[in-house]
Design a protein around this nucleic acid. Structure first.
Lengths: 328, 328
DNA sequence: TTTAAACATGGTATCGATTCCACAATTTAC
DNA sequence: GTAAATTGTGGAATCGATACCATGTTTAAA
């Protein structure tokens, strides 16, 4: 791979002139420009990104920190980010935390060192230490999925979606409604969706047995386990269950099927996620589509807008859509 | 962020000494080293990767080119790669081709410019132009999923797996076996699996109707469509179908269910993939586990071994495992 | 005691770009 | 016809690190 120096020599100009031609800055005569272009075409020269980064402090790389790539949600978000970024010649440097909160912070540092132009963080918590670290950052950050006071974020309306979902179950005649959630440290998925469930139940003056509220992690098996606990230990069996993710819902269905309970006749199920598979389960899952690609797209756009010295909105709330299928 | 120069000044040594301390190269007195370490801790200094890259030509970044992140297969592979790489302080620069063959080549160039230390390519074709480009590369490459003559690759034994699968169906008493494949330009998934199917049928002296062979793309809907064509246009309906991916199989099942055919009583289904969801379909899918994380892990290990000046194997064939469930 | 390793340190060139500045050659304005 | 812009170009500094080389100081060997 040739360097700018060699290009300059071959075109019989100085490095400065080549650089000016490359970046369309300053004056370059038609004659010189032509010679330079010819040489560049001949040699297939491309300027070194590292040298450029060192000098200009711009890398055309955006760091993306995510809890795991092994879920449809994450990969959709990344696809959305990539779609926007690739268009503008940016690339994605990946940092996978494997759901480890420590690493979320570590990677922020690591990406800083790599001098990425910006960071998109798909967050799973809203701890102060993380917030502080993000605020101190001198490069633009956008958080997806959690809401921070001072940091631009793309959020889903988890609370409203939660209430809508429960309200929908009630409208279908259900009075005993169970809930399968996740760790409440996850403000968005854990806390808000649960709160929405509790509030809607209370508003509608419906009581909730303790055992109706179960907690799992983000996989199918824990949904299965949660359903098992709920069904085995409840005095009154719920006639409907709200699971906060599709995977949990699939696990729940799997347990119900095992013990001979029919969905939706005996127990209705509703969830949030709208994963590809949700329409092929039996019965097809009634779920909420969160437009994950859209989140990625918006996040990338926000970062680019910021880098373009345009202002950036502090918070964007995405809309969602209840997909009514056959599990309720 | 401070630079090495400032650290040197604060610790009262030269930049050379700081560099030596940082890299454990050459001599540094205990005394100096302590002072330097103290200053580094105080300031939170971390050396600039770009400056380092410029000087040393090493970036600690591996480029990963993949056809799409939106499949479980890809994300598992990436997870495997990440697992090994993160351990060694390497990061992943992502390049998503969206199944566009042109881009596969473009990204090789782009990653070259970014001076990545190595490239892992999850390939979908084996075209000569691509092979040539890869061979010309001066940095290590490992290809996953396709086999090239001169380039180290991690491959699944698609042919043998295909024959095993068909042979298993036959052992279960099936004689009329349909096939849902993909574009044969995809040597591994498209061509080899089909060839295996044809060969096994021939070896067992079973005939194959033209309409039993259908082609889709890599999604559920096209599996549905393929099944529809197969069922509607065949003289004799197959009693079993081999779909080359889980998603296609799920689509096939979805169509069969729609027209009232029972799985596996009326039509048995088998596929390759072992996606998470495959065990929760109804009935649970009999499928082949290809150990995708393993592919990622091996690829990353190969790249690192090469960078470590150790030799690299030209080809690694991964093993697979038939998971027998209830769809056959 | 002389000689040679081993240890310790700093100076300087270098990687491959960009950018500011000085200078020269043209053009334009008055 | 002179002053002032405009245009075109190259030199040199710079970004933040590494690495080679020269020099000086100790320590060990002969």
């Amino acid at each position: 791979m040739p360097t700018i120096k060699e290009i300059a020599e071959m075109a019989n100009v100085s490095r400065s002139t080549v650089s000016r031609a490359l970046n369309n800055s300053g004056y370059v005569s038609e004659d010189a420009r032509k010679r330079i272009e010819k040489v560049i075409k001949q040699t297939g020269y491309v300027p070194s990104e590292h040298a450029k980064a060192l000098r200009t402090k711009k890398t055309k790389v955006i760091g993306v920190i995510l809890p795991t790539i092994q879920t449809e949600t994450s990969s959709k978000v990344v696809a959305g980010i990539d779609q926007v970024l690739a268009n503008q010649g940016y690339q994605i440097l990946l940092a996978n935390t494997h759901l480890d909160r420590e690493k979320e912070m570590e990677y922020v540092d690591l990406l800083k060192v790599r001098q990425v132009d910006g960071i998109i963080l798909i967050a799973t918590n809203t701890e102060d230490s993380l917030a502080k670290k993000l605020e101190e950052l001198t490069i633009p950050v956008v958080v997806i999925g959690q809401e921070f006071e001072q940091i631009p974020s793309i959020v889903y309306d988890n609370y409203q979606a939660g209430r809508d979902v429960v309200s929908y179950l009630i409208s279908k005649g259900h009075r005993q409604i169970g809930f399968v959630g996740v760790d409440e440290k996850d403000q968005a998925v854990g806390y808000l969706r649960k709160q929405a469930y509790l509030d809607e139940m209370e508003t509608q003056q419906l009581s909730v047995e303790d055992t109706w509220i179960q907690r799992g992690v983000f996989d199918i098996d824990s949904g299965y386990d949660a359903a098992k606990r709920m069904i085995q230990h409840s005095n009154q069996r719920p006639t409907a269950i709200f699971a906060v993710t599709d995977r949990l819902a699939i696990g729940v269905m799997s347990y119900l099927k095992e013990v001979g309970l029919q969905v939706p006749k005996d127990v209705a199920i509703i969830s949030i996620g709208a994963s590809e598979i949700s329409q092929y389960t039996v019965p097809a899952l009634t779920t909420v589509d969160y437009h994950n690609e859209q989140a990625g797209i918006k996040a990338a756009e926000q970062i680019l807008a910021y880098l373009d010295a345009k202002k950036i909105s502090k918070k964007i709330t995405l809309d969602y859509r209840l997909i009514i299928r056959n599990s309720v």
